[in-house]
């Protein structure tokens, strides 16, 4: 049994997401801090997050909410830290806002991001209809783990007002500049659609709303969780 924790920032509906994981045979627990364990509250104290993390195979950062409040929710408890939770290489899937949180900062709020990937998050240009809502096709740059079995040109569903901006020159000494696994084009604007770096997987689109292609990615993520 694969057990995944879905972090609830308290901002909205995560029913579809929980459901999409359970449909693929996983158990999904909604957590509001990194000390939470299956079936009840966790310990307190400085080991709480690492201790709680042992009960889960993966973490999901969902795509509903606002950057500032969501980052505050994730960093609220000084005794149960995100970094301790994922410190042993727990697979993390960030969807939309969840993916944006991987970067250093966002124009959506002054709160710093998780900073696990180089780059920042900017508003979509005002030449576009914002929020951008609809189906777009993926241009796959490198297959990675999340996109296994997904065809180049596959359609996925986006709802967003912000986009990741990767540094033009990758920082020295790492694969961090090469995190983009797929892009999507809105007329002449190209946006990073999927990213992967170490145990962090992210999608700007919503796999849980992307039909059979999205189901494939959910299965791929659960596969990564089981490894």
């Amino acid at each position: 049994m694969t057990r995944v924790a879905i972090f609830d920032y308290g901002a909205g509906n995560i029913f579809s997401l929980k459901n999409s994981l359970e449909r693929e045979g996983a158990t999904a627990d909604v957590i509001r801090d990194f000390a939470a364990r299956p079936g009840g509250d966790g310990n307190s104290g400085s080991d709480a997050a690492a201790d709680a993390a042992r009960h889960y195979d993966g973490l999901l950062l969902p795509g509903v909410g606002n950057f500032g409040p969501a980052m505050k929710a994730v960093t609220r408890d000084p005794d149960s830290k995100f970094s301790d939770y994922v410190g042993h290489g727990m697979p993390v899937l960030g969807i939309c806002l969840g993916m944006e949180m991987f970067f250093a900062r966002s124009q959506e709020g002054s709160e710093p991001g998780l900073g696990v990937m180089s780059g920042d998050v900017a508003s979509l240009p005002d030449t576009m209809k914002v929020p951008h809502m609809g189906w777009n096709s993926l241009q796959i740059r490198r297959r990675g783990r999340l996109l296994e079995g997904v065809e180049d040109g596959a359609w996925v569903y986006f709802v967003h007002s912000y986009m990741a901006r990767l540094p033009a020159t990758p920082p020295p000494g790492g694969a961090a500049g090469d995190v983009v696994t797929a892009e999507s084009s809105y007329n002449d604007i190209v946006i990073p659609a999927a990213v992967e770096y170490r145990n962090y997987l992210g999608t700007q689109f919503h796999p849980e709303k992307s039909g059979p292609v999205g189901r494939q990615m959910i299965r791929n993520f659960l596969g990564v969780c089981r490894r």
């Binding site: 029913f15 709303k209 039909g211």
Partner: peptide, 11 residues
């Protein structure tokens, strides 16, 4: 709504 949400995966 719950019934629908649990059988589809489109918006």
């Amino acid at each position: 709504v719950r019934g629908v949400a649990s059988v589809i995966d489109i918006p």
